[in-house]
Computed example of a mutant assay.
Amino acid sequence: MQGRVLVIAGSDSGGGAGIQADIKTVTALGGYAATAITALTAQNTLGVEAIEEVSAPFVAQQIDVVLKDIGADAIKIGMLHRKEVIETVAELFEQLDRLPPVVLDPVMIAKGGASLIAAEASEAIKSLLIAPHTHVLTPNIPEAEQLTGMKINSLADMEKAGRFLLDMGPKAVLMKGGHSEGAEIIDLLVSAEGIHTYSHPRIDTPHTHGTGCTLSSAIATGLAQGLTIPDAVARAIRYVENAIFEAPGLGAGHGPLNHGHTVGPFV
């Protein structure tokens, strides 16, 4: 087991996304997952039915006790939901002597279209987390549009939005192309070193619930294990692609991936 990853995110009762997907991903890639749960959701493959808040002080306490004892080689941030939680996490980060690489997946919209973030929280994410603390930002196209105010209709638009987000302060921005049209998905990693392009065939399946959570956790695990950002992204994309190929086909809606495809049965 190599690489400690602290995941700060919401819970998915259906197990396909959120903290549940994060723990599975980190474990399947050989890392150690610790968690700070920011919200509870009642959801399944058909959508999110309810969200139960976790108090901001308790979110901070979860982070604090883990870091003081177990530590972390990388931090993955997913669903934060409320401005108060974002402010509290940012304040705690400011107090740390050393902040490990932070992978921020700006979870804003569920696969079924439900909003997962309060309206005022978007600005707080930009000013308090992306600007000063983010190592790798991983927005999909709708999230990038919300963060930048741009419409993204082409690869050129993705690059433009990626550069706009890079100027906010992160070391790298992974612009995910899954919401674009076409038989091929193209993801762009935008950094000061230039553009890395990752292309892979689109898989015709409804079973893609939790792909964003899974990808960002896989990237965080790679960074925790000492991989460069481009190499961590490349491995994470391969992992997610195989997890989609081997999805178990559960549920009547957007089903979960097979996070355990790297793991064989214990005999």
Rank of each mutant, 00 (worst) to 15 (best):
A90P: 10
E87T: 13
L80C: 02
D73H: 14
P100K: 04
D69T: 06
A72H: 02
L67D: 02
H81C: 03
D73F: 01
I86C: 04
L104H: 05
L92N: 13
P100F: 03
K83I: 13
P100D: 01
A74L: 09
Q95N: 11
M79L: 10
G71F: 10
I86S: 05
L104I: 01
P101L: 08
D69R: 07
V65R: 11
K76D: 05
V66A: 13
T88E: 15
T88C: 11
M79R: 04
L104E: 02
K68E: 10
I70H: 10
E84C: 10
I109T: 14
P100H: 07
P100Y: 09
E84K: 07
D105R: 03
Q95H: 13
I75L: 14
L80G: 03
G71S: 05
I86H: 04
E94P: 03
K83H: 10
E87F: 11
D105C: 08
H81W: 07
L96E: 07
L67F: 08
G71M: 01
A110R: 11
V66T: 07
V66P: 05
R98S: 15
I77Q: 08
A90R: 05
V102K: 14
Q95C: 08
V89H: 04
G71E: 01
L92K: 15
I77R: 00
A110H: 12
K83F: 12
V102I: 15
P106M: 08
D105P: 04
T88P: 03
D73M: 09
D97Q: 10
